[in-house]
């Protein structure tokens, strides 16, 4: 396969950045998207040019490190699939592919397609946990949790923190990510004592990090590689509302 790639290049966070055109002719349909970029980078390095920086690690769709907006869609055209699991058979010979970083004020570009998503970590530090120290936990079966609720918690906990929701949202809002964090623990008895605090603190940190506001476009849901439903956003809104009314305790 032959492809024309338009790739965002930006040397440093303060650089303006621009799209750069590359032609790639030795693409196999069995390659993953990142393997295709590997091939490009091999060519670039042999030519003595700076390879394209992009984040990736597990390449199994679970670590959440890979990103990229491909032809306007976060993680590319295949539903419920991270970029690393997207294969080139989703493209046709002769296609032009535009590759951009996840764009948001809260995700500043580090270099080329690499962005800084530490804002997600800071949101989690504000309360995305159960305050329990190691040791002294009761027997795991002492607290029965019905399968339906446990499954619901798992649906939310499946979030890999990739940030595609932010990238896809026309407002760069992080609501799906935050609601998945809140939803995971809100559906478990272990999460109840801190439920109200958690909702308030995560939301206020989310605001402070400079994400946009949710306008219920539901673009986040469409690109989420783990198919986390927007119902969790409604749940978070409910949790937050009742936390405020309870005075935030």
């Amino acid at each position: 396969m032959k492809l024309t790639l338009n790739i965002w290049r930006q040397k440093t966070p303060s650089d303006a950045g621009h799209m750069e055109r590359h032609e790639l002719s030795d693409v196999s349909p069995d390659m993953s998207f990142l393997e295709m970029l590997d091939v490009l980078n091999e060519h670039l390095q042999v030519e003595g040019k700076d390879p394209v920086a992009f984040d990736h690690d597990c390449r199994e769709g679970i670590c959440g490190m890979c990103s990229l907006v491909i032809n306007g869609t976060a993680h590319g055209p295949m539903k419920a699939t991270t970029t690393c699991q997207l294969h080139m058979r989703s493209f046709k010979d002769g296609d032009t592919v535009d590759i951009e970083p996840f764009r948001a004020k809260a995700f500043p570009v580090v270099k080329d397609l690499t962005v800084d998503r530490s804002s997600f970590d800071r949101i989690n530090e504000a309360g995305g946990f159960v305050s329990v120290n190691t040791g002294g936990a009761p027997d795991a079966n002492a607290l029965p949790i019905g399968k339906v609720e446990a499954d619901k918690a798992m649906d939310a906990a499946a979030c890999i923190g990739c940030g595609a929701c932010v990238a896809a949202c026309p407002n760069a809002s992080a609501m799906l990510f935050v609601s998945a964090k809140i939803g995971h623990l809100a559906h478990l008895p272990q999460g109840q004592p801190e439920r109200a605090r958690r909702a308030l603190n995560l939301v206020s940190t989310m605001d402070a990090e400079g994400f946009g506001n949710c306008r219920n476009y539901y673009e986040c849901e469409a690109v989420c590689p783990k198919e986390i439903p927007i119902d969790f956003i409604a749940e978070m809104n409910r949790d937050w509302r009742s936390s405020v009314l309870k005075g935030g305790s």
Partner: peptide, 22 residues
């Protein structure tokens, strides 16, 4: 055995039976 207890206390959503047991 302590590990499972610890993880459950942290809210790790282990698979459950309908009766609520792990």
């Amino acid at each position: 055995t302590n590990i499972i207890d610890q993880c459950a206390a942290q809210g790790v959503p282990f698979a459950r039976e309908y009766g609520g047991q792990l």
